[in-house]
Design a protein around this nucleic acid. Sequence first.
RNA 1: GCCGCCCUAGCUCAGUUGGUUAGAGCGCCAGAUUGUGGCUCUGGAGGUCUCCCGUUCGAUCCGGGAGGGCGGUACCA
Length: 489
Amino acid sequence: MTQSPRPEARAPRGFMDRRARDLAAEREILTKVSAVYEQFGFEAFDTGAFEYADALGKFLPDADRPNEGVFALQDDDEQWMALRYDLTAPLARFVAQSWETLPKPFRRYAFGTVWRNEKPGPGRYREFTQCDADTVGSARPEADAEIIALAVAGLEASGLPRDAFVLKINNRKLLNGLLATAGVADEGQKLAVLRAVDKLDRLGPDGVRLLLGEGRKDESGAFTKGAGLSVAGAEAVLAFTAAGVGGRAQTLDRLSNVIGGSAEGDEGLAELVAIDVALTSLGVAQDQAQFDPSVVRGLEYYTGAVFEAELLLQTLDEKGQPVRFGSVGGGGRYDDLVARFTGERVPATGFSFGVSRLASALRAAGRGLGAETRGPVVVICFNPDDMPHYFSVVGELRAAGIPAEVYLGSSGMKAQMKYADRRLSPAAIMLGGDEIAAGQVTIKDLDLGRALSSGVTDNAAWRAERPGQQTIARTDLVSAVRAILEARP
RNA sequence: GCCGCCCUAGCUCAGUUGGUUAGAGCGCCAGAUUGUGGCUCUGGAGGUCUCCCGUUCGAUCCGGGAGGGCGGUACCA
């Protein structure tokens, strides 16, 4: 037999192993957010992990670079398939495929894993869970307003404090109108302007001014080419992005002064007015959803309103540096996505957030599942011959709704106690020869012991005291364990 | 993708001006404690010093390349 080298035990980079604590936090988010979304009339919906690559749009694998951006492989009929990189593209495909039979507008939400084949970074993985809610088939601004209200309600339901985040709203048509007035028609130039504005929070107005004009050299000496706007054009864009201060009505007033005149800009303004009216009657407060012209959302496919859920938390990392959480989710109106399949324009709008990102935001806000996940009641194994007794105990406990297990390792008693301690078990059950003969059980309250152990200095005394330990009639097992659980939930 | 820094035990890091057996703290395992978690003490396991090529009598250390990590920048459906 040939000696093959041992594989290195490690997860692929960008892929995460998650233990009970993280999974519990994510499951809780999923449960609470789903309830809110269903209350808004959105139905649960999911698609498969793979799509045919051409359905995913711009990142078409080719023979040379089949995995650029996505994880792709060839089906046995030679068709390229790719793991979905978001939940919107599969939705567009499904809607195009099922348009005739769907109730319209189609309102759905989805939790699902998505994959991106790109360089991972801190807080950036190649596999993660997204949650999306979308309305397909309504061009009304009220559809956008409902998505915004739903996003606010969903984030709040997940446990994010109301003052820990704000939904920022903008409309692509405003900037398009502004640029049209300034004589910018080139799509590439428009995109460069969007990218420049997107960096406002990081580079500040001066850095963005450079990027709107000729370009900017950063600290490392690298040069980024600018959008090539005139000085007047750049100033107009900057004035526009600075208009988002105060309540929604004030921002609208200020915007109408800055935008003035262009047909597309006026259309965008009118949509924001309608959104404001709807939000107000839906009870979404001024400090929960604001208009902010500096919000961009990089994506090319947005055609109207865009939103971003920004975290306002100020926290410090291990080194004491302030942490910018930035955006926890975003979305907007995309009226052209279904048309890629059908040729027919179908208006759509939606919001999306990353579940693990939200979970870490909740942790930072002190609202995460702080407690470790509790272990089961552990039945100590003294002698394998007595297994039937041990299993009848866990059987009773389980039947009473109490998580329980028999220790099935091979270590001695001390190690078994340590095991139960490490699992954060509430209690250990001891059923040695003596107890079995006497029809009794010994129950050790581990929580009580944990509370007392910090004050103990002498090992012999600690062991002699046996805090929280009681030997009772076997028939009282369940009620005694239940008493321990209820005393310290 | 581009630029910079880094890679020694499970983790955090010492160290060798290139010389036989590479260390610490924490963690892990065991004993002291025949059926008891913490503290303490004692002992133990665990390393091709990231990999490959080169220079050298000799490389964990010097040079080149690759891989991985971190930071910045670009991109981000």
